[in-house]
Design a binder for these strands. Structure first.
Lengths: 346, 346
DNA sequence: TTGTAGGCGTTATCAA
DNA sequence: TTGATAACGCCTACAA
């Protein structure tokens, strides 16, 4: 039973620090709570002793009484997808700076929300939850959450989502996809495209259905033919095969608007390396997202950009606000999109 | 005070379930603990009531007494990197199946281990920690962990790591890079490469220094000239610029062995799209990792594969074993590498 | 198989 | 500014 106590005797507790520093247990607690009142010199002494003993307050015990876990749950169908991994990275960084840790859960690939998973997650009591899985009603999600208020990402036509409205409280991030889509279509039209194909994303994805709807609408507004719908699922391989089908079985197109950048890559490679067509000479290609790979020289993709930093900042704002004022009215943050012109249209 | 209690009255507790099901509080606890003895029909009734009340045991409270958080910490410098995001994805899936949740932390990009971050993480009491950040001594890391035993990924020459050995317990995953590197060099040599450049990764990365060392060793064993060392940091952009430097300022090479696939992509694009050289005609390129993008037609990269599934399975085995028998001796799992031949050598 | 009692490490409450 | 005391929700004894 030495002063320093042997390392493997287990983790230092507030009691131990208190004894070592000749103060009460409560004082130790206060030393780690910036807005608690404690004589500065006393706090310093306690923190010094704590450092020596390698003490950190136990979040589990703390959360038991404060009802704050400092955990933010993220439910993701596919961590590997470039867009989502970027978003996870940025969100984790931003939340970490605010004292929250990221709790990562993997949902099934079909975008469905496994009730088992939700139940499981509930056990960890996340202060907030961000679901990258879209096809679940706010009511259902919030039924699994206690204090947490869900955040939804919605697109363009807020009314389409209004049908799902209910008494349940939830915050929203509205992405104005139309801005960027209009610019893209105008560019394609300007370069002479007449027959535009939409290479879709996962059917269950709200982002996808809204992109499709919005592209059709913009084409109509500009007096162009409706888009040729090509099935996809956001992956390279499916995009590749669907593009081959479009030109070998179907009747082709002079422009492809892909639901995401990775899909655009698959289309470009199919066109250039298997169909012997030139991009943008024979077929123009536009993507969606503007992931870092979009500027890689092999693709140099013209794409509709959703600004990641803006998006993450907006999400963090929503989360922090809701944590500070749990009963506040629901809030909508808005994000715009814009076309980034590179080399696949021209 | 209705039967069902109003939703926002807060989360259901074991007491509430016990009252509702006419059993004791302990019975509820046992119902959620498969190896506790409880009359089956009683368990069923309790679980049914629990489901109705949307009750889940509170992990924080549970961990306080069991000393098991069911949290696995992952410290990652860059979630976006394709290799790491793959590994996070697979690990999270595997751990989730075993009842563990992933707690994600972002380390600084320079691979250093922020003591603040470690202290912060400690508060969450992870049962295990996987650090993708390599340059930290086991002693330091385990100083911040209580029950958790660190896992290290080491490369080829186990002796090089032995210098860092200490009384501290830690498990190891040994990656035999030499197998794949030998195959790659043999292929390059067979196709006539004489002057091979090594396009490095982050200097602080152990994987990188060992790859460089091993390539030099293999070249020497085969009577070839030592590699031209080209600085890199695993990113596309740096690889791109370094390749330009190699050919414009330096004296070129007839083959480039990149420390990772993304770097190889940068090299290929610089060669083809800016230097006007053909790959593999003028310059052959080999990568490392075999990420999904390596088979994209624009690159079709010949690369040394580290099998992700094997790697994840080995890590999970190490973690679960350590959790089951915390005092077991340290264990080493071994992984091999092999060349995947595609179109950038020939 | 069941129930009672006690404690895990922390913070909120209240009185000094 | 301080300190004693009582929770927080759960699980592990132990005894019935």
């Amino acid at each position: 039973m030495s002063e320093k106590t042997d390392r493997k005797a287990g983790r230092a507790t507030a009691d131990l620090v208190a004894r070592e520093a000749n103060v009460s247990r409560v004082a130790v607690s206060r030393a780690f709570n910036p807005n608690a009142s404690l004589k500065p010199e006393k706090r310093d002494r306690i923190l010094k002793v704590a450092r020596e003993l390698n003490y950190t307050p136990d979040m589990a015990a703390r959360s038991l009484v404060t009802r704050r876990s400092h955990l933010v749950g993220m439910i993701v169908p596919d961590v590997c997808s470039p867009w989502e991994s970027q978003e996870i990275d940025a969100l984790t960084t931003a939340l970490q700076a605010e004292g929250f840790a990221t709790l990562l859960f993997k949902a099934k690939a079909d975008f469905s929300m496994d009730p088992m998973l939700l139940t499981y997650m509930r056990g960890f009591n996340p202060d907030s939850v961000i679901a990258f899985t879209e096809n679940i009603e706010p009511d259902v999600l919030s039924g699994f959450l206690d204090r947490a208020v869900p955040i939804y990402v919605i697109y363009d036509d807020a009314d389409a989502f209004a049908g799902r409205a209910s008494e349940t409280l939830y915050d929203r991030l509205l992405v104005r996809q139309k801005d960027g889509i209009e610019q893209a279509v105008a560019l394609l039209q300007g370069y002479g495209a007449r027959r535009i194909a939409y290479l879709g994303g996962k059917k269950q994805s709200l982002a996808n259905t809204e992109r499709e709807r919005m592209i059709a609408q913009v084409l109509a507004e500009r007096g162009m033919a409706p888009p040729v719908i090509v099935p996809g699922d956001y992956t390279y391989d499916t995009a590749y095969r669907s593009t081959l089908d479009l030109f070998r079985v179907g009747s082709g197109a002079d422009a492809i608007f892909a639901a995401n950048d990775v899909g655009a890559f698959g289309a470009i490679d199919a066109l250039r390396h298997e169909l012997g067509l030139s991009v943008p000479g024979d077929v123009k290609v536009v993507g969606f997202d503007d992931i870092p790979q979009a500027h890689w020289k092999s693709y140099n993709l013209t794409t509709v950009r959703i600004d990641l930093d803006d998006r993450v900042r907006a999400l963090v704002r929503l989360i922090l606000r809701r944590l500070k004022t749990p009963d506040a009215d629901s809030l909508v943050e808005t994000l715009t999109t814009r076309l980034v012109v590179r080399g696949t249209v021209g």
